[in-house]
Amino acid sequence: MQKNNLQPFASFRFRPEEIAVREDQVMEMLRQDDLSENDPVTGAVREVLGRLPEICDIRGGYALFDDVEIDLAGGRVVVDGVPLDTGCRVAGYLRGSERIALFVCTAGEGFSEWRARYEAQFDYLGGFVVDTLGSMVVERAMDRIQDMLERRVTESHEKISNRYSPGYCNWPLADQQVLFGLLPANECGIALTESSLMLPIKSVSGLIGIGPRIERRPYGCAICESAACLYRQIRHK
């Protein structure tokens, strides 16, 4: 099913300071925003933030596809003749898309390495802070890329959708293999495991709809009603 001619990939690399995760934002994410200067959580956050330059290797980008069909009834998005089984929900969100951007982004392998280092010393808090920061960094980097994409398509009077990812909104994770098949191999240093997980772990992938009538909608945690979700409690992806 895969085409031989891959679309050009717009590639970006960021320094940690360009992503600019602030201490107060991390503390809020951890629900620790009223701690003293001497609290061990404050210390752990500062320590990991200080290490970001050696932990991060932030890379990402997207490829644009003009040959797109949104199959609402079948719950599929067909990109360059290749069907992605997104399910009806994501396909519905992409209604009106005339182009599609497929994206990947990673915060780098350093987050897994540093988390393991902390946890080997039973420093579970340090490991947790590393993990949280990894999620924040990769999402913020992808926000930057999405903003750049939006500016680019605004020139042609188009708008963009939210970003949607395999594994979420009933889009099977296994489709990650199909999505990656539409992108240059090992783009940004991201590889897939046999069970379709990305390595480095702190990576994201998915698609964004583009068109003059497309709309951004509430998505993910914003529309989830699970009161028991630990990730809601810690406001963590």
């Binding site: 951890l30 629900r31 959580v41 752990a44 039973f122 808090l125 947790f128 630990l230 810690i234």
Partner: peptide, 11 residues
């Protein structure tokens, strides 16, 4: 208590 406090106690 929140996740960080649990993890500190776990350590």
């Amino acid at each position: 208590a929140f996740v960080p406090q649990m993890l500190l106690s776990a350590r």
